[in-house]
Amino acid sequence: MVRVDGGRGSSSLIQVRGLDKKYQRGSEEIHVLQGLNLDVDKGDFVAFMGPSGSGKTTLLNLIGGLDVPSAGSITVAGDEITHMSRSKLTEWRARHVGFVFQMYNLIPVLTAFQNVELPLLLTKLSKADRRKHVETALAIVGLVDRTDHYPRQLSGGQEQRVAIARAIVSDPTFLLCDELTGDLDRKSADEIMNLIQRLMKEFGKTVLMVTHDPVVAQRADVTLHLEKGVLVEAAKPEGVTAGGLA
């Protein structure tokens, strides 16, 4: 169950309370997130929508431990990440978060295999075990035959699939996807979304995704709109426009 009213116990996987984020731009203060609440359970698939500049990326980065809030708390699987040091946070990310960004996901000088292997280099796995994990991840995303290809030898959709393989290879607690289909055509975007849905269903992954594309958003269990610094729920079938409160 996904909730945005902050009115629940501490049983959910991801729990965001009173999240505030302000940016200082010159003398002007931008109050992007204003006391935002969110609860996400294990296995949930959430889509975030909202106009450009509404703070979707900001929210995702905060939940992923890439940034620190101005106020409020984020608790993931019982760990409050909002007070962790930078280096603690880095370790935490390696264990719990799989990121897929819109662009620049892959290291161009590394092969698909090496890119997917990156998170595993941070573990104590042996070389053989790493190989096994990488091959499994690449098989899940359907790219076993592209193992030794470099990013420039892959299509945009294939690149994103490699990025997804990298995000899941270390079996993180949840996936964060920021406009992962933003650069793809309809067909590739559909393929990628099929893949994400499969991950959800077969592997019970928890996914938080930002998108501008209503068609993509429909694949999620819930679509949340970011408006004036807080999240509001949208009705699922018609969830194309900014809906009222759920």
């Binding site: 992923g64 890439l66 930078r86 280096s87 880095t90 370790e91 990310r93 390696a94 264990r95 990121f99 960004f101 662009m103 620049y104 996901n105 892959l106 290291i107 161009p108 990156l118 998170p119 941070l122 990298r166």
Partner: peptide, 15 residues
């Protein structure tokens, strides 16, 4: 820059 950022996002430390 972007690649180094991705490395960090993945969990590689600043050091």
């Amino acid at each position: 820059t972007a690649e180094l950022a991705v490395l960090k996002a993945v969990g590689f430390s600043d050091r």
